[in-house]
Design a binder for these strands. Structure first.
Length: 1062
RNA sequence: GGGCGAGUGGCGGAAUUGGUAGACGCGUACGACUCAAAAUCGUAUGAGCGUAAGCUCAUGAGAGUUCGAUUCUCUCCUUGCCCACCA
């Protein structure tokens, strides 16, 4: 039995404490506590049928250690857990074994729960959420509807991966090397209507707000790069039909007589020798009748469209393309005619889908120009040969690198044996024989010659704007988020399609402006001449999109009268999808009118709203006593108020009042006064246009009271052979009464991606059982934002970005307390298999955590996973290495049995000092996620204690306390054995004494010319003079100094002395 | 091809406002205990030369800055992750 005492008997101890902790509710967070809060979050797991992976406990233990320490430091800690259970693997498994995914999920979650509990993690299980629970996804659907009503969701035809043999749509991960994962058939594309989220609208804020949060730098850069902001210019190239020698608009259908390109290098405009449009570009179809080689082009486009993205990428080496013969475009800067090509190396998804090709200064254009024998004009002189970096140049067709040890790196071209020679390359660049992508000095650019690249960019952008052929523009790589999934096992999208409502739901915009016309006789709905106001521009832009626009002339513009104005709008068409814009007095009129008439509309946009006329007071300037019916908030999906920053104060004030009373979003435009009577220079108002959007026509949200829209229980989960979701086949479920008109409606059958549930689960944790709201304002305010969030790097660009996006959108709707969900984000490294590869069933290298726990115990497993290496890096598993930490835990037990003769006090300054240094180091290491060194520090302390003949009880207790977050079961057991009635986790975290933690003596190093020649024990605070004199006494040093001249001495206090000799 | 990381003994790793390279652990060797083994404990353990004191070389490669570089700069190599003809 004594033997037993010596060792950590984990099989007896661990389950016992897990039970006791649960019974005591030791880890439950309090929603109303006077202690400071700490919200500590891990990414909730996907309960796969493989069970827990050894990678899970690594990050969970890490945050568990932090959570336990924080509790001991007096924090009220929220450390929740749940399951992200929707998704493809479960669905596919369900199909395979012919079971309901819900059943499978339940089994898997049970297993995960048991496995997680066996690790002794201090989760607050009372707050567990599962995304597949209808009581949870009710709120996922509810949030979707809020964002839908805010105009952030739209529908678009998008290609999906399609297996022509299985006749099903495939997720990206089901496409392996361009082939279907199941049957190996090459995957093609199929166009389907998909729901998309307008994440691009938030692109800038998603970049800017990274300043507000503490994420690992690499996470920030990855997000910034993913969003991919680039500054440049949009430039219009006029189309000319060379056959007819004309540029008249009528030659081109759709009145489109120019092609717009985006470029980050407007300074190379003079070098644009041809243009390329992507095969999907609308120009290609618009202009087909005009071109000479119609059949060839049609053929090419057809082929290019059939290619999957992967193919288009794989074929990158051989560029292809076809010229659009018979038409040309005009380079706006020099009126030169240039040819226009269609080629699939240009993608529709980025920029405008068309580029100006500058072969002298872009590798891809250069390659293409060489292939098709197109003109190359150099417009950037590198300046001098030193600027020529091989990385910035491109020799056609190949560039090989030759490296010999001790020699500079050589570059060769083809088989010629050409050597890297800056002079020669310089000449080639100027002759257009080599492509140069760097910056430099402008040549061949007329009035812009001699300008440096950056200056050129600024100047030409201004010139383009002045000439109305282009403008400064910002472009993002980020694309809108495709939200639809054609699968069963996801949250149903809570929408109903209704044919009847479609008819009554067309997009209508009212523009109501009350200000008087300068010319009183003019019959127009805005002030001033046509070319002096943004309203005509807005009207034209909207009408071009097929929107019905009403811009009535309001009677008595000088003295607006509510009753007369009411009459003026009486007959205008309006519906629930309408956007109403009120400017100035019109902005005051609309809220009152909407209040009285009780109309439902989509959006209300007020542009510097004035004060409304009431019956007693008819002078516009005195209308302070306006009335606003606040109930309109409930009947309008979104309310926006525009104001400019140099508006007069009283207007600013009134705008703010509107914003506050109506709950509207206030947008301030900087710069010129867009809207004032005096300064009507604004002829275009794109910020306003951006805010005008319509709900999809004929698509009705499911009313909140009818949520959740539950997944029907059916026998067959197989995808349909039309590409639709399996739900489409369930007629009883699809057919539903239209919630708006009561007529025949059909449910949306697409489901949400599993990012949906995981986008907001951390909000639900704050109030997981609330059945009135997705979470109460009070609890959200209490806990959010999350103090620390840990997860894998693979989620940086998807989950993390999506959930920041939703949170911001919810913030704009005033539904969450701040603009950012997570204050701090860190990430863990993967646990690899023993062979250094990813663990996978097929490789047979998977480690089962259950077996590790059974053999070595949870505490050992926890300690090992912390000790194996730096937390943020990928580390291979090493079963042999586990015994080291196991021995360490046994040693801790043994210390109690053997050395604890336990004098309660003892004078041992060395141990004392080490103890306090350990407290300091372990505390700091936990805060900074350096768990591996925290563990080794504890080991060092234990090793030192082991050597003591008599170990003071107080010191031993501190060791056990420091150990407790890492090895909670063992520590709790020892704590009880040491006679404590209360849990160790109710103890206070030890604090170090800075004086004791300091070293009094150090091993002082004496160097000669930077090489260590002697070491001596000296006081830590030794002065330079003393150190020098000590050094001079050293025989070893004397030996090295003899016969040499001392040049100087470098003294680093408490560390070393370096004597430099010659 | 682009972006972001990482490269240190036989192995996992430690050490960075530039200051003793290899903490801690694994493994290995020898020893103690044992009839024996396991477990445990002790000693040693980067490489080379040397009986030794000691010296030299070593942090992916090469250069540079510095009294001093694993740490900073440049060029390159290898490797991991994410993305990919991003204009």
């Amino acid at each position: 039995m004594v033997e037993e005492e010596n060792k950590y008997n984990h099989q007896a101890i661990e389950p016992k404490w897990q039970r006791r902790w649960e019974e005591a509710g030791l880890y439950q967070a309090k929603d109303n506590s006077l202690r400071p809060n700490f919200y500590c979050l891990i990414e909730f797991p996907y309960p796969s049928s493989d069970g827990l992976h050894v990678g899970h406990p690594r990050s969970y233990t890490a945050l568990d250690i932090l959570a336990r320490k924080k509790r001991m430091e007096g924090y009220n800690v929220l450390f929740p857990i749940g399951f992200d259970a929707f998704g493809l693997p479960t669905e596919n498994y369900a199909i395979k074994v012919k079971k309901n995914p819900a059943e499978i999920t339940e089994t898997n979650v049970d297993r995960f729960r048991r496995q997680l509990k066996s690790l002794g993690l201090s989760f607050d299980w009372s707050r567990e959420v599962i995304t597949t629970d209808p009581q949870y996804y009710k709120w996922t659907q509810w949030i979707f509807l809020q964002l839908y009503k805010a105009g952030l969701v739209y529908q678009k035809e998008m290609p999906i991966n399609w297996c022509p043999s299985c006749k099903i749509g495939l997720a990206n991960e089901e496409v392996v090397g361009g082939n279907c994962e199941r049957c190996g058939t090459p995957v093609t594309k199929k166009n389907l209507k998909q729901w998309l989220f307008k994440i691009t609208k938030y692109a800038q804020r998603l970049i800017d707000d990274l300043e507000k949060v503490d994420y690992l730098e690499k996470i920030k850069t990855q997000q910034v790069n993913w969003i991919g902001r680039s500054e440049g210019a949009l430039i219009k190239f006029e189309i000319r039909n060379s056959k007819f020698e004309t540029n008249s608009k009528s030659e081109i259908p759709n009145s489109k007589h120019y092609v717009e390109v985006f470029t980050t290098r407007p300074d190379t405009l003079f070098g644009a020798t041809y243009m390329v449009v992507s095969p999907e570009h609308e120009l290609v179809t618009d202009i087909l009748g005009q071109i000479a080689n119609r059949r060839e082009v049609e053929d090419y486009v057809k082929k290019a469209k059939a290619k999957s993205d992967l193919e288009r990428t794989d074929l990158a080496k051989e560029k292809t393309g076809v010229e659009l013969k018979g038409i040309k475009v005009i380079n706006p800067v020099n009126q030169k005619e240039i040819p226009i090509w269609v080629a699939d190396y240009v993608l529709m998804g980025y920029g405008t889908g068309a580029i100006m090709a500058v072969p002298a200064h872009d590798k891809r254009d250069f390659e293409f120009a060489k292939l098709k024998n197109l003109k190359i004009i150099c417009v950037v002189d590198p300046g001098n040969t030193e600027n020529i970096n091989p990385a910035n140049t491109f020799k056609y067709p190949f560039r090989k690198k030759i490296e010999k040890p001790g020699k500079p790196v050589l570059y060769t071209t083809g088989d010629v044996g050409y050597k890297w020679d800056a002079e020669k390359i310089y000449k080639e660049i100027l002759n257009g024989e080599t492509c140069y992508e760097g910056n430099g000095i402008a040549i061949n650019s007329n009035q812009f010659n001699e300008l440096k690249t950056e200056e050129f960019k600024a100047k030409i952008t201004k010139w383009l704007e002045k000439e109305r052929v282009g403008k400064k523009a910002v472009n993002y790589k980020l694309r809108d988020w495709i939200f639809s999934r054609q699968h069963y096992w996801g949250e149903p999208i809570p929408l109903v399609h209704c044919e009847e409502c479609k008819k009554n739901n067309k997009p209508i915009v009212w523009i109501i402006h009350g200000s008087p016309s300068r010319n009183k006789s003019q019959d127009q709905g805005y002030t001033g001449e046509e070319n002096q106001h943004w309203i005509p521009w807005l009207k034209e832009s909207l009408e071009a999109k097929g929107v019905v626009v009403y811009n009535p002339r309001m009677p008595k513009a000088w003295q607006p009268d509510y009753q007369e104005w009411k009459k003026a709008v009486e007959k205008l068409e309006i519906n629930e999808n309408s956007v109403l814009i009120g400017h100035s007095a019109g902005g005051a009129f609309l809220p009152r009118w909407l209040g009285e008439t009780k109309k439902r509309i989509n959006k209300l946009i007020l542009v510097v709203p004035g004060k409304v006329a009431n019956e007693d007071n008819k002078r516009l300037h005195h209308f302070y006593d306006f009335k606003i019916d606040q109930t309109i908030k409930e009947r309008v999906n979104e309310i926006i108020i525009f104001i400019s920053d140099n508006e007069k104060d009283y207007r600013k004030k009134s705008s703010k009042i509107y914003s506050k009373l109506l709950g509207g979003r206030l947008i301030t435009i900087k710069g010129t006064g867009h809207f004032t009577f005096e300064d009507m220079k604004t002829k275009e108002f794109p910020e306003l246009l951006d805010e005008i959007s319509f709900l999809p026509v004929g698509v009705i949200p499911v009313p909140e009271k009818d949520l959740p829209v539950e997944l029907p229980k059916v026998k067959n989960y197989e995808p349909t052979n039309t590409g639709e979701s399996p739900l489409a086949a369930i007629k009883d479920w699809v057919d539903v009464k239209c919630p708006q008109c009561g007529g025949k409606g059909k449910r949306e059958t697409d489901t949400m991606p599993n990012w949906a549930g995981s986008n907001w689960y951390f909000i639900r944790y704050t109030d997981p059982r609330n059945d009135k709201e997705f979470a109460s304002k009070k609890n959200m305010k209490h806990w959010l934002p999350v103090d620390i969030y840990n997860g894998g790097m693979e989620h940086t660009t998807l989950h993390l970005l999506y959930s920041r996006f939703w949170y911001k959108a919810l913030y704009d709707l005033k539904l969450v307390p701040g603009p950012e969900p997570y204050s701090k984000r860190i990430s863990h490294g993967m646990v690899l298999a023993e062979d250094g590869k990813k663990m996978s069933k097929s490789l047979g290298n998977v480690i089962n955590p259950d077996e590790v726990v059974k053999e070595y115990g949870a505490d050992t497993m926890r300690m090992y996973e912390m000790f194996m290496g730096p937390f943020s890096e990928a580390i291979p598993w090493d079963t042999k290495g586990i015994v080291g930490v196991r021995r360490f835990l046994d040693k801790i037990c043994k210390l109690k049995v053997q050395n604890l003769k336990l004098k309660t006090t003892a004078q041992n300054s060395k141990l004392e000092s080490l103890l306090h240094k350990t407290i300091k180091k372990v505390t700091e290491d936990i805060e900074n996620f350096r768990f591996n060194t925290a563990v080794s520090t504890l080991m060092e302390l234990a090793n030192a204690m082991e050597k003591q003949k008599e170990l003071p009880l107080t010191h031993y207790k501190i060791l056990v306390t420091l150990l407790s977050p890492f090895a909670p079961h063992l520590s709790e057991e020892l704590w009880e054995k040491l006679g404590h009635k209360e849990s160790i986790f109710k103890e206070e975290w030890p604090k170090h004494d800075p004086d004791l933690a300091k070293e009094s003596e150090v091993e002082f190093v004496i160097q000669v010319n930077g090489k260590v020649r002697d070491k001596m024990q000296l006081p830590a605070d030794i002065s330079e003079e003393e150190a020098i004199s000590k050094a001079e006494q050293s025989k070893k040093i004397k030996k090295h100094l003899s016969g040499k001249q001392v040049v100087k001495k470098i003294f680093v206090p408490g560390k070393l002395l370096n004597i430099v000799i010659r």
